[in-house]
Each structure stands twice: as structure tokens, then as C-alpha cells.
Amino acid sequence: MNAIIGLTHLLARDTRDPLQSSRLAKVDGAAQHLLRLINDVLDLSKIEAGKMALESTGFSLDRLLQQTFEMVAGCAREKGLELVLDTAHVPDGLRGDPTRLSQALINLLSNAVMFTDAGWVRLRIETLR
């Protein structure tokens, strides 16, 4: 998957054709999604073996949410759904495991899109403490 992602990036960087750029962006998005799925399966194996360790690192919530929304935006668009993000006063800089958070949010949003026939899907994030 990393080879597909890398080669897609190189091709996209060198192309001037908008149609080809669009197609390469779709290949890249699909490859990124498949890589996340592979990592999810590997994570499940770690959980079952009792070897899962959560990361504790600083990350940008805004960037993570942008990438997460990009992963499900195509499916939402195909169904005519609007994706709505509501982050009322949540700080951007957080500490935790951005990979696991992203996996959980992609799963949540993908399921919401899959089971929503019309209208919108909203992700609301708020600070509790």
C-alpha cells in the first residue's frame, strides 16, 4: 500500500492534466483508506494478544478532523449527504493517540454515512472538563 501511495503521489506531482489529477486523488484516497483498514486489522490482533499500547503525543485536532472528513467525504457526496463538523470552542492542540482517534472517527462517520439516506451527518465535539 505504501508503494501505491508513493507512486500515486509522484504521478500527481508531475501531472498537469486536471482529469488525471482527480483520478490520482481518488486512487490516493482509496489507498489511504485501505492502509487504515489493514492497520485496524493489525490493531485488533494486538488487542486480542493483549499487546495494544496507546500512544501519547501532541497533535492538531483540526488537522486530524480535516483528514478524517476527507476520508468519508466521497461516500457522503455520492449519497448527496452533507458532512457537518461542530467543534464549539475545542482546543486545537491535544495530547493522545491520534491514530486510534482517527480510526474511531472514520469508523463512526463511515457508519453514519452508510446508514443515512438523506440530509446530513454531524460530528459534534465538545470539551467536558
Rank of each mutant, 00 (worst) to 15 (best):
M1I: 14
N2L: 15
A3G: 06
I5T: 12
L7Y: 07
L11Q: 09
A12Q: 14
A12F: 12
T15E: 01
L19V: 12
S22R: 12
K26D: 14
V27D: 01
D28V: 01
A30D: 10
A31L: 11
A31N: 13
L35H: 08
I38N: 10
D40W: 07
L42Y: 12
L44N: 07
S45L: 13
K46L: 15
K46T: 11
E48P: 00
A49V: 02
G50Q: 10
G50F: 06
G50W: 05
M52P: 01
M52A: 11
A53D: 11
A53V: 15
E55Y: 04
G58Q: 11
G58T: 07
Q66L: 15
Q67F: 06
T68A: 09
T68S: 10
E70V: 10
E70S: 15
V72W: 03
A73N: 13
C75P: 01
G80F: 03
L81A: 07
L81W: 07
L83A: 10
L83E: 07
L85C: 08
L85F: 06
D86H: 08
A88R: 06
A88D: 13
H89D: 13
V90D: 01
P91N: 05
D92T: 15
L94K: 06
T99L: 14
L105C: 08
L105T: 03
I106R: 03
L108C: 08
N111V: 01
V113R: 03
V113H: 05
F115R: 10
A118W: 00
W120I: 00
V121Y: 01
L123M: 06
R129I: 00
R129Y: 02
